[in-house]
């Protein structure tokens, strides 16, 4: 099976989306050929050879962070190019299955639901086969949790969702998810929030930003200047 994975995060290799792709590769296992397009921010004008290569794969997995309840604009641009190529030359093979894996920094996987709906509409618009998606909340835990046993512990619900996509990919040309899966790591809401708050404060400290400055309202000052 030839699988193309598009990392739709502008953060590229250091993103949670890239960690999800790595997790998927791990579950799919050996014996499959992967094409990973990871730096789409740099691929503002992707050359046709990349699009051509993606189009020859049996399955396409689009992995992305949710921005304002939808796909990041940079990913929309990339997918638009892929769709335009399909329309222009019939270059994208009909029947290519498309899976999506959305992730967000909020706790609930439900935040990803609309973005998966948008991916389905994308597939319908350009003749690709929508094969289902996974929406993962607690996205900031994806890179933090390096474990040899992802099938147990807090990562278990996410691992189960990734496994569902992996199974559908390798099962055969017609396999799809029965429905979208919305999930998150097995931690409590309050614990995830507390952990998030600690992480933000730590990043601010590293940049020498004081707590009171973190709450700055610079645009208020701007409007006073204008008036």
């Amino acid at each position: 099976m030839r699988v193309a994975a598009i990392n739709g995060s502008p953060r590229g290799e250091s993103s949670n989306s890239r960690a999800l792709i790595a997790a998927l590769q791990g579950v799919v296992g050996k014996g499959h050929e992967w094409l990973i397009v990871s730096q789409i921010q740099q691929e503002r004008n992707p050359n046709d050879s990349i699009l051509d290569t993606i189009s020859t794969c049996d399955a396409l997995v689009v992995v992305f962070p949710v921005y304002m309840d939808a796909l990041p604009a940079s990913l929309m641009r990339f997918l638009g190019r892929y769709a335009a190529r399909a329309a222009r030359a019939g270059a994208v093979r009909r029947g290519q299955r498309v899976f999506a894996m959305a992730n967000c920094g909020f706790y609930e996987g439900e935040h990803c639901a609309v973005s998966l709906e948008i991916m389905q509409r994308y597939c319908e618009s350009c003749g690709l086969i929508w094969a289902g998606g996974v929406g993962v909340g607690t996205g900031e835990m994806l890179r933090q949790r390096k474990t040899r046993r992802p099938e147990s512990g807090p990562g278990k619900p996410v691992h189960r969702a990734v496994k569902a996509i992996a199974n559908a990919i390798v099962t055969g040309a017609d396999a799809k998810l029965a429905g979208n899966i919305l999930t998150q790591h097995g931690v409590s809401w309050s614990r995830y929030r507390a952990s998030g708050d600690r992480e933000w404060k730590s990043r601010m400290r590293a940049n020498k930003i004081k707590q009171k400055d973190a709450l700055a309202r610079p645009l208020t000052a701007l409007s006073k200047t204008r008036s």
């Binding site: 995060s9 502008p10 953060r11 993103s15 921010q41 962070p65 921005y67 990041p72 604009a73 940079s74 641009r77 933000w200 990043r203 601010m204 590293a206 940049n207 930003i209 400055d213 973190a214 709450l215 700055a216 309202r217 610079p218 645009l219």
Partner: peptide, 16 residues
Amino acid sequence: ASCMGCFGCWTKTPGL
């Protein structure tokens, strides 16, 4: 320019 998701507007130059 597309948002890079760097969160610099939160952790480097808050609000900008």
